[in-house]
Simulated assay, not measured.
Amino acid sequence: MRKALILPTKYVQGEDELLNLGYFVSTFGKTALLIATSDDVERIQSQLEVTARKFDVSFIEGGFNGEVTREETKRLQTIAQREQTDCIIGLGGGKAIDASKVVAEGESLIIVPTIAAQDAPTSHSAVLYHADGSFDDYAYFKQSPSVVLVDTKVVAKAPTRFLVAGMGDALSTYFEARATHNSYSRVNASLPMGSREGKTPPAIGTYAALAMAELCWENLQEDGLNAKIACDANLTTEALNKIVETNILLSGLGFESGGLAAAHAIHNGMTVLEGTHHYLHGEKVAFATLAQLVLENAESDELNTVMDFMYSVGLPLTLADLGVNNFTFEDALKIAEIASIPEESIHSMPFPIVIEEVASAIVVADKIGQNFKNSRMK
Rank of each mutant, 00 (worst) to 15 (best):
T271W: 01
D366M: 05
E42Q: 12
L149F: 12
K242R: 15
Q13I: 10
G259Q: 03
K378P: 04
G106K: 05
D169F: 12
G259M: 02
I88V: 14
T85C: 13
V244D: 00
L235V: 09
I368T: 09
G29M: 10
G269C: 07
P350A: 07
F28E: 09
I266W: 02
L171G: 01
V155Q: 05
P316L: 08
F255T: 08
T69G: 00
T114V: 12
L215E: 12
Y184W: 11
T51S: 07
L109G: 06
A32S: 09
L7F: 13
G282D: 06
D308F: 06
I204A: 12
I266Q: 01
A286W: 04
E214W: 10
S360T: 13
V148A: 02
E344N: 06
G14N: 14
L7S: 14
I110F: 12
V324A: 03
I35L: 09
A32P: 00
Q370K: 13
N326Y: 11
A177S: 10
R53D: 12
I338G: 00
S108Y: 02
N297V: 06
V306L: 13
K242P: 03
G94H: 05
S26K: 15
F59Y: 08
R161V: 07
R161C: 03
V354G: 00
H278A: 15
Y140S: 10
L48T: 08
L34C: 04
G166S: 04
T271Q: 04
V127S: 02
I362V: 14
I346G: 08
E176Y: 08
A208N: 11
E344R: 11
H281Q: 09
T328P: 06
H181R: 13
G369Y: 02
N247F: 07
M1K: 15
R178K: 15
K367Q: 14
Q81V: 09
W217S: 09
A99I: 07
A139G: 03
A265S: 15
A179I: 03
D366L: 00
A126Q: 02
S195I: 07
N241D: 15
M307F: 03
A262T: 01
Q84A: 15
A116E: 06
S144E: 03
A361D: 06
V187T: 12
L128C: 05
E218I: 15
T318E: 06
T180S: 15
L260T: 08
G106I: 08
P113E: 05
F162P: 02
S38D: 15
Y140P: 04
T200R: 12
N188P: 00
A261Q: 02
T73C: 13
A158P: 01
G369C: 09
Q45C: 07
K142H: 14
E222F: 02
N219V: 10
K74P: 01
T305D: 13
V41Q: 02
D331M: 12
V68Q: 05
G198V: 08
M212L: 14
I79P: 05
S190A: 14
V354P: 00
I60A: 01
K3A: 12
D331T: 06
L7Y: 07
L250T: 02
L34T: 13
R43V: 07
L215P: 00
K101Q: 08
L76G: 11
K3Q: 14
T69E: 01
